[in-house]
């Protein structure tokens, strides 16, 4: 390393260039940090507000002097929110429900996406158009048919043959499982699309090599293509989990019990606390709601942080170049 001096740097053109490069790099870094911090702030500000609210006591809530740091912090909001939402058992059941559905979704959607990406069959374009239609179609137009299908669930007359009447699946989590198995779960169309694009982007040589080595189509898909599309798998897993977790449309439509889906409990938390604990001040009620929202957010963020490590790992594993 040469000794650096400003004077020398301006005399020697090569040194000047190096210095300019350094300055440019520094400015760029500062700009990048500024953008990231700024955008992060815009995203975080409502969350920070909620966090502050969830820790503040009654005295803080009405004290205009309190800013960001509550003067008399309390855990009371969390205690009551956990009690009223029946938090731990509900979140346990909910995570199990969401994870199982996510697994099904990833499996089925990747399969369908692969089918569209790599095979040629008649009506392929038309059928893929149907996938797009499925993404676009407004959810309220499919409400009524879905309800009637699962209210009198009778696949090919099997239920009628056994019990004499169609089964009523309302109030159980089964409709969601059936829909996910048939590739029509929460935003399944989008996942099929994502997988399709990823598989199309992968080099065909990997598949051909596998085929020459005697792997069947099923094996090629499951052991080779799916492993290479692991960024897509992780992405879809993350999205599927979050949207399933947050979904209120399907859980309301199928009358899924609030003991399985915490998203239903969070939307009623405020009125439950108002009625059961006789807390009639709306400002105070909101503090409990914010504590509840933080509680609901936490597990998803934790799962995301765990998975995002695999974002990177997955790619290193798939270092095959066409």
């Amino acid at each position: 390393m040469k000794k650096f001096s400003i004077k020398k740097a301006f005399q020697d053109p090569y040194q000047t260039k190096l210095l300019m490069n350094d300055v440019k790099k520094f400015c760029l870094t500062v700009l990048q940090i500024a953008i990231i911090v700024g955008v992060s702030y815009v995203i975080l500000s409502p969350v920070i507000g909620m966090l502050v609210n969830s820790f503040s006591s009654d005295r803080d809530a009405f004290n205009p002097m309190v800013f960001v740091v509550p003067e008399y912090p309390t855990l009371e909001r969390y205690q009551l929110a956990i009690l009223r939402m029946d938090y731990w058992p509900t979140i346990g059941r909910n995570i199990l429900y969401v994870l199982s559905l996510t697994l099904i979704q990833v499996f089925i959607c990747s399969m369908v996406g692969y089918g569209f990406a790599r095979f040629d069959f008649p009506f392929k374009k038309l059928l893929f158009g149907c996938v797009v239609v499925m993404i676009v179609i407004p959810s309220h137009t499919i409400m009524l048919p879905l309800y009637t299908t699962f209210r009198n669930f009778d696949p090919a007359g099997i239920a009628t043959a056994i019990t004499g009447a169609p089964i009523n699946l309302m109030g159980t989590p089964w409709p969601m499982y059936v829909m996910s198995f048939l590739g029509c779960g929460v935003r399944a169309g989008l996942y099929i699309y994502i997988f399709n694009q990823f598989f199309r982007g992968l080099p065909k040589e990997i598949e051909e090599a596998a085929f020459v080595d005697g792997a069947g189509m099923w094996y090629t898909y499951f052991r080779i293509m799916l492993m290479n599309a692991s960024p897509a798998v992780i992405t879809v897993t993350v999205f599927s989990m979050v949207w399933q977790f947050n979904d209120t449309f399907f859980s309301n439509l199928f009358l899924v019990s609030p003991d399985i889906v915490i998203s239903k409990k969070i939307s009623t938390l405020q009125s439950v606390i108002a009625n059961q604990d006789k807390i009639l001040n709306v400002t105070i009620q909101e503090l409990y709601l914010h504590a509840g929202i933080i509680l609901v957010l936490l597990p998803i963020i934790l799962i995301y942080l765990l998975l995002q490590r695999y974002f990177i790992e997955g790619v290193e594993r798939s270092g095959i170049v066409g």
Partner: peptide, 23 residues
């Protein structure tokens, strides 16, 4: 490969016909 392609998209196709075409 054509048949395999149909087999790969089969679950979705059934679901689409039952839920979406009907709706």
């Amino acid at each position: 490969r054509m048949v395999a392609g149909y087999l790969f998209i089969l679950p979705w196709l059934v679901g689409f016909i039952i839920f979406y075409v009907r709706s």
